[in-house]
Design a binder for these strands. Structure first.
Length: 500
RNA sequence: GUCCGGUUCGUCUAGGGGUUAGGACACCGCCCUUUCACGGCGGCAACACGGGUUCAAAUCCCGUACCGGAUACCA
């Protein structure tokens, strides 16, 4: 039997980093076992589901490269089947009508309300005390026929326990006394999550359910439904959760954009780098390797390698340099500077195009120069954005000067204001009949430096600021050569950076 | 409250009866160098606590603490 897994997000927000990892693990498991990776949108909560959210999730998945192997299933389309299933269980006596009036929703935080109510019960609530659990079928039918609204609840046995072997957490058991007679169908006729999930997983012939550990108790309820339906449940594998730096819940409300997948796309992350990072959050191949291609991840992935303890997504909101997990940043930089250039090229092209810095010559006449330049500058870049920001001066005359660079490399040496234009004149003379190459540039600059009785660094760093606008970058000799003589002269003579 | 789960450097993790407890990121230092966020070398830094079992426990067992999840006519 081929494995069939599904990623089943509910469209109530963007693609969360934790959901993205769940999608990744499902995808890896499907590929590893030669099975199918399916996508189901769990939009049964009409009030909270939005089309916009669905699109955002789909975009996130597309960016990460996880295309479903079959058509996307929208859970709301299956509501009739879910209702039918509930009615079937009712007819078989495995479920019953609950005529208790629906409690009006509280305006307060729902989670807290539930928690308080549960605490008030002191854990001694009898889960089988519903007055409608054992009324006669005649009475139940009569009241229903009279138009009295009712929810349908699963009739959980008085004694016994649910159990399943979780592929990550091992044997899980839960006494029936801990599980209430869960509602399958709301009084307004809408199927509830646990019923919908089970029906759809059966319908989609899901063999392995890989999802967050927050579903562990749901699983017991779902096992009950499988049993009532007489269907063998799939294999369950629950994933540890991804937490905020204080080990609390990672949420949009509290942590903002760091948890959204689109943030990383927009910040110039490479999907493959982020995938790699995500894979190592809660899973490991029990070895010291850190960088994995998708193929390697697929080959090495296993449910056994999934951890049981939660992982912290580490970032400091108050430190701009650590706005997101520093390992993710390092990994992205690692990919940018080491991946084959031809794979990086399309991404750089897109970035330069977006910044209006792209020129078609970079793909034909100037390709050699362009490739060379990218290889030079990518060594110190962290994101794709750097190509259009820090690297802007390589592609445009219109670039900004970093105030810190001006302060450090120009203002501290006022002589440079005349020296640099002088150096331009020298370059112009010397390179009239001499090749503008690193060796020759070095020779000329050194001679110039000695004449001025200053240090090479003063001239070089001053020139760096004038030529690139920033204080960091590759060897200055390479920069001179890459920028080219003509632009070098122009920029050395410009008084722009000196401000007033 | 109750049920379930977890706990190795700041973070991600390896190890799962005998290890100088390993790696990566971050941080710090040195080197390279014209600067630097590249590179090289090095350093700091962890088995939550208490009991057992054992010749030997980070590793197995029990308890405690702490953290997390769940506890809906949400998903």
């Amino acid at each position: 039997m081929t494995t069939r897994v599904r990623f089943a997000p509910s469209p109530t927000g963007y693609l969360h980093i934790g959901s993205a990892r769940t999608a990744l693990f499902n995808y890896l498991y499907a590929r590893n076992t030669g099975g199918k990776f399916l996508l189901r949108i769990e939009d049964t909560d009409l009030a909270r589901s939005t089309e916009e959210s669905t699109q955002s999730i789909l975009q996130g998945l597309a960016w990460l490269g996880f295309a479903p192997d079959e058509e996307i299933v929208f859970q709301s389309n299956n509501a009739d089947k879910h209702r039918e299933t509930a009615r079937k269980l009712l007819a078989e006596g495995k479920a019953y009508r609950d005529f208790t009036p629906k409690a009006e929703p509280t305006d307060a935080n729902v989670k807290d309300t539930i928690k308080d109510r549960a605490r008030a019960n002191q854990g001694e609530k009898n889960m089988r005390d519903n007055p409608y659990r054992d009324i006669s079928a005649e009475e139940s039918d009569a009241r229903a026929a009279a138009g009295e609204p009712f929810a349908i609840r699963l009739k959980v046995a008085e004694t016994g326990k649910t159990s399943f072997e979780d592929a990550v957490y091992g044997l899980q058991e839960r006494d029936y006394t801990e599980t209430e007679d869960l509602v399958l169908l709301r009084s307004d006729g809408h199927p509830l999550y646990n019923l919908a999930v089970v029906c759809d997983d059966i319908e989609m012939e899901i063999t392995h359910v890989i999802r967050g550990q927050d579903h562990l108790t749901n699983t017991h309820k779902q096992v009950l439904i499988y049993e009532a339906l007489g269907v063998t449940p799939p294999v369950f594998a629950h994933l540890p959760l991804i937490m905020a730096p204080n080990k609390g819940k990672l949420s949009k409300r509290k942590h903002g954009e760091v948890v959204s997948m689109t943030t990383y796309r927009d910040a110039g992350f490479l999907a493959e780098a982020f995938r790699n990072f995500l894979a190592l959050l809660g899973w490991s191949a029990s070895e010291e390797q850190e960088i994995y291609s998708l193929d390697e991840l697929v080959a090495k992935f296993s449910l056994e390698g999934i951890h049981r303890s939660n992982a912290v997504f580490n970032f400091s909101p108050d430190d701009p340099r650590k706005w997101t997990d520093d390992k993710a940043q390092w990994m992205n930089a690692e990919y940018i500077r080491t991946m084959p250039l031809d794979r990086l090229l399309p991404h750089v092209k897109a970035e330069l195009k977006a910044a209006k810095l792209w020129r078609d010559e970079y793909e034909d006449d100037d390709k050699a120069w362009f490739d060379n330049t990218l290889n030079l500058i990518r060594q110190r870049f962290f994101t794709l954005k750097d190509f259009s920001s820090q690297g802007r001066a390589y592609f445009s005359e219109d670039f900004d000067f970093d105030p810190a660079a001006i302060e450090k490399n120009l203002n501290k040496f006022p002589d440079l204001k005349t020296w640099l234009p002088e150096l331009a004149d020298r370059f112009e003379r010397e390179f009239e009949g001499l090749a503008y190459t690193e060796e020759n540039i070095e020779m000329v600059v050194k001679a110039f430096t000695e004449e001025k009785g200053t240090k090479l660094g003063v001239i070089m760093n001053g020139a760096r600021t004038m030529l690139t606008g920033v204080a960091v970058g590759p060897s200055m000799l390479s920069v001179f050569e890459t920028i080219g003589l003509e632009k070098t002269l122009l920029r050395l003579r410009s008084q722009l950076a000196w401000g007033s």
